[in-house]
Design a protein around this nucleic acid. Sequence first.
RNA 1: GCGUCUGUAGCUCAACGGAUAGAGCAAUGGUCUUCGGAACCAUUGAUGGGGGUUCGAUUCCCUCCAGACGCACCA
Length: 559
Amino acid sequence: MLMKDKILEMIISAVQSAGITVGEDQKSKITVSVAESRLGDYATNAALILAKNADLKPMDLARTLAEKLKSQEFEKVEVAAPGFINFTLKNDYLVEHVARNMEHVTKERVLVEYFQPNIAKPLHIGHLRTAIIGDAILRMLRYLGYQVQSDTHMGDWGTQFGLILLAYKKYGNEGLLENDPIGELNKLYVKINEEAEADPKLREEAKQEFVKLEHGDTQNHALWTKFVDLSMKKFLTINELMNIEPFDNHWPESFYHDKMPKVLMDLKSKNLLKESQGAQIVDLEPEGLGIGLIVKSDRGTTYLLRDLATFIFRQSQGFTKQLYVVDVRQSHAFKQLFAILHKLGYMKDDEGVHVDYGFMSFKGQALSTRKGNMVLVEEVLAAAKEKVAKIIADKNPELAKAKDVVNAVAIGAIKYFDLSHNRHSDIEFDWDKALDFEGNSGPYIQYSYARLASILRKVGPTSYVLHSTSLTPTEREILFKISTFDEVVVDAMKEYMPNVLANYLYDLAGLINKFYHESPVIAEPDEQIKNSRLALINLSKNTLSKGLQLLGIDPLEEM
RNA sequence: GCGUCUGUAGCUCAACGGAUAGAGCAAUGGUCUUCGGAACCAUUGAUGGGGGUUCGAUUCCCUCCAGACGCACCA
């Protein structure tokens, strides 16, 4: 059990033994949080919340509770104005507690959808964000014991394939296609779109091509399969390229093609479907969500219908929770989706969550604005690697396996930059900042790790014992910080905010660097202190390693 | 027009309704006979305006200002 939760339980029972009744609404307002280090380890506002009910002054109630809360785990339980209770854990207790691993409880099945590229459209920075955030969430939920799976949901179906098929038949070249499938398909798509602007007949032809595809035309189906296979292969290089966990499922849009009629029947049988302007809609005006378009007036299907089928299918696979890591522009669409699923009776509470994120823009050094404001993944990565390689060549020219290190640092820098920000914020990517080794950055944390690794390497294998006495204030802070690791991951996943963990790791790395500066280890004459510091280093290193890996960043023994 | 989100230091960002609003960059000044100086320490500096709720508001509510993004036949 997490220390935080344990303290909360102690508080509740202390309150009850003081004869004070606690309503559910009040209970939910009582918090136990990490205190400022000068005040203690944990703090609670319980007395402030309950004072009025108990008809006591907050300070008096706090004192009463504090008295009851004194127990073997705590060095101190103190009261502070206007009515906080602060807890300081015993060092002995911390030493013992910190060595324990989180008990593994198997939790519900969760599906995380992220990385939704469209065939014939190149990977850009938006795809990078969904992949990075989604991947981090997957890793963290898995750590917490959830049975998580990922799903990519690629865009491989729809009327745009009519245009692509038509263009390929007119101008296509097999060699070019195999060489650079997405680039070539994109070129064809752009070209035919331009032509269709001028000549509406082409659009009609394209539509027919798609109809043929839908009806299983052999030639079109073969071409489509080829486009999809080649593109998929290319897209999935993201796993290797960005160190993204392999995806568990690929259920693309086409996969739901034959699952939509059933949803339509369902909607009809529940009287939710209406005819309007020749189209089939669900009226969501009462919910303030406008009109949900299900079938277009030309009888074409919509994304909304496909998304309904998607949710229902995944639910049938046993997933009791579905997370959609998709940018914030889709939030209206997801509200509609969830509202209709409620009406259909498929969704209760928060079984579906839109994990939205803001935009990433770029500062200075405009990266190719040829395609509008699109910044390509390849360009970002190449630029990052180039910059990192220069720094490495400068700082550590002797480094073995420099290429791997450059790769890991570049990826770490990009990911950390993304993940350290609150995902709701629109953020500006600053090359100098993200790839500077100084300050709050991925490389800073990797560097802190490498320093610890270096000390342990020098000392060689020994068994370390952490002693609870003779801890310096910084060492004590580090120890406590490490003990809260699991709490932090739990907190981070309450609202699916990877930045909570990223910020924690930065704080920890900062403390470690401070400690590194203050306390010599190898040169320490007192063997017991030396040994204890080595133990602390070992713990710190393991914690940084766990945390970095949950963010999808490789810890490096040397850099 | 309606809706959602955002507005914090010169810049880029943090902050479960909590205690003296934290960082990084930039600027200035320091530390060290470098267990890896890619470090550490310090100084200057901020909640868009106005109301309200609360013991307590960057956080919740109202309003105004500024910006971004959405509001059925594009995907």
